[in-house]
């Protein structure tokens, strides 16, 4: 745990290196070895990188737990559906509209419940998920419970198939989500959010505008989740409430950062890569119920045993190694 300034160099290298690796891997996938399975699995993992990073901006940095990731994700998808049906809007417009809508949704939930204790915010997010799902189920325009099938338009110029285009968009989205979460962590906002997580009353008393920061975090986090949901319609060629509002999104978006480590931007990425891949393998090879069980068990295990996630374990190992020979242990 050295000073922030000194760790920044390595941090930068990890980020830039990671981005390049992802883009190279994506290009390889898109042009060369593409089997449908690997392609789909990678798409889902990328999607989870966006969701987990977005969740962590509020949950990890500020300590406010969002149980309703699926609400934001699905609302993103349905906003895109609306934009397609209404204006025949292109993908980019769909994504922007989805991010705007879910950002506003975040603001609304935040204004209602962020003045209260954390658990009320959490309950409010569950509530919004169920209320929205009920509204969609009862709205014929959005296909109701049966869902709606959509035709894909032609892909845009350099791309030969719509799949590749969506994949490329998701790669960009994952990189931007990680970049945004990293920027927030290292900016004044991040320090303020961390102060809120440590002790909200004290933070307010040393001049941190706590409500404003929490609202910023909720809006950014919500907008990113919505953006991740926007391509869902075109990816599946179909949208239907039960799978769009699936609890799995909410649990995974929360479990991934906690498993990876919530204190830094890289934690959710580690968690999403790890848990996302395990999920993809288990779902196919064993069963989807078992996959869900694994997520739950891992979540509880990490919360109880290693609250700082894999990142915390690595740090502990590192400080132990560097302190070897030094007989005296550190704090605690």
């Amino acid at each position: 745990m050295s000073g922030k300034m000194s760790s920044m160099g390595g941090n930068n290298r990890i980020f830039v290196g990671g981005c390049i690796a992802v883009v190279l891997a994506a290009i390889a996938l898109m042009t060369g070895v593409r089997t449908d399975y690997v392609f789909n699995a990678s798409y889902v993992v990328l999607q989870f990188i966006v969701l987990a990073s977005a969740w962590n901006i509020l949950g990890g940095y500020a300590g406010y737990v969002n149980f309703g990731t699926s609400a934001f994700f699905a609302m993103g998808g349905y906003t895109a559906l609306f934009m397609i049906k209404m204006f025949n809007a292109p993908l980019l417009v769909q994504i922007i509209a989805a991010a705007c809508c879910t950002g506003v949704l975040g603001l609304g939930i935040g204004l209602i419940s962020l003045r209260l204790r954390g658990i009320f915010f959490s309950i409010a997010t569950v509530a919004v998920a169920i209320v929205l799902e009920t509204v969609i189920l009862n709205t014929d325009y959005f296909g109701g419970a049966k869902g709606l099938q959509m035709m894909r338009p032609e892909p845009i110029a350099p791309f030969t198939s719509y799949d590749t285009m969506l994949f490329f968009v998701m790669v960009l989205m994952a990189i931007s989500a990680v970049a945004i979460s990293r920027y927030i962590e290292q900016s004044w906002i991040g320090r303020g959010l961390r102060a809120i997580k440590d002790n909200e009353e004290a933070a307010e008393c040393v001049g941190v505008p706590t409500l404003k920061l929490k609202l910023i975090a909720t809006v950014v986090s919500g907008a990113l989740m919505g953006a991740a949901g926007a391509p869902l319609v075109m990816y599946m060629r179909f949208i239907e409430p039960v799978s769009a509002f699936s609890l799995n999104y909410s649990v995974s978006a929360l479990a991934m950062p906690i498993i990876g480590g919530t204190s830094s931007w890289i934690g959710p990425v580690i968690g999403a890569l790890l848990l996302g891949s395990v999920q993809q393998i288990v779902t196919v090879t064993i069963s989807s119920e078992l996959n869900v069980l694994i997520v739950g068990v891992l979540l509880v295990f990490f919360v109880v045993v290693a609250p700082d996630g894999i990142l915390g374990l690595v740090r502990k190992l590192r400080t132990k190694n560097s302190a070897k020979g030094d007989a005296k242990g550190g704090a605690q």
Partner: peptide, 13 residues
């Protein structure tokens, strides 16, 4: 205190 931070970081807030 902001317990996840060092004293210097506490004051930085």
């Amino acid at each position: 205190p902001f317990h996840s931070m060092t004293p210097v970081e506490n004051l930085a807030v």
